[in-house]
Amino acid sequence: MKVLVPVKRVPDTAGEKSFDPNDRTVDRESVESVLCPVNEFAIEEAVRLKENHGAEVTVLLVGPESAQPVVRKALSYGLDAGLQITDDAIAGSDALGTARVIAKALEGQEFDVVLFGNQSTDARTCLVPAAVAELLGLPSLTYARHLEVGEGKVTVHREHEEGWDVVESTLPAVVSVVEAINEPRYPSFKGIMAAKSKPLEVSSLADLGVEPDQVGLANAAASVHEVRDRPPKEAGTIVEDDGSGSAAAQLADWMVEKKFV
């Protein structure tokens, strides 16, 4: 079994994020970057497929050269190989542009399952997995809270507002996972050491056969033309509960005044 895990580099949530004032894309050099935390759940699921089915797992990242430590980080969980697509022309792509690059990279690989995160922690559009599936003509079993891969068949519990759908399809398939699917383990010391010498291939758009006019800021169908700070919030009313219940009464009054009751 072969598994591909696309991972994203994101700014650390705890750091301050900023946009590049020139082209209004995210300024990724200004804050510390990390492996998107949602991808850790996909990686854990891939490691389980290794353990239970002997899967061979490749991690795939689309991003600048400086994102390479994120690929190594992903490898440190025990994955087998890395593939990074790096090209200046990719910068500023919209979600569908990013999906085009990922899909092209996947076309050059053999795989049974692609394991995405359901979202990223920065842009959070959730568009990439389904768009990639469409480009490859494959089923998109997204929002998986449970995954079973059998002989030529995959079963997923797709989380939704009211519960989940149990869905089944043939392989290969595109899957995205939600946090509820598992509890990721930490990389072992051995894994961290081994990651340094795992094969890592870096490809350009030309290597993949992607025309530069398919991707990038200038060709993005959706693009940002203005960024501003959210206006600061006025300080709220803070009351202390003295045990008499008057604080709850004040809150209830406020809620009535605001017409929530």
């Binding site: 569908l96 999906a99 959730c126 568009l127 768009a131 469409e134 480009l135 507002e161």
Partner: peptide
């Protein structure tokens, strides 16, 4: 919302 975004993404392509 989650599942509807999938419909939009696939159709957009």
């Amino acid at each position: 919302s989650n599942h509807v975004k999938d419909v939009a993404a696939r159709l957009a392509i």
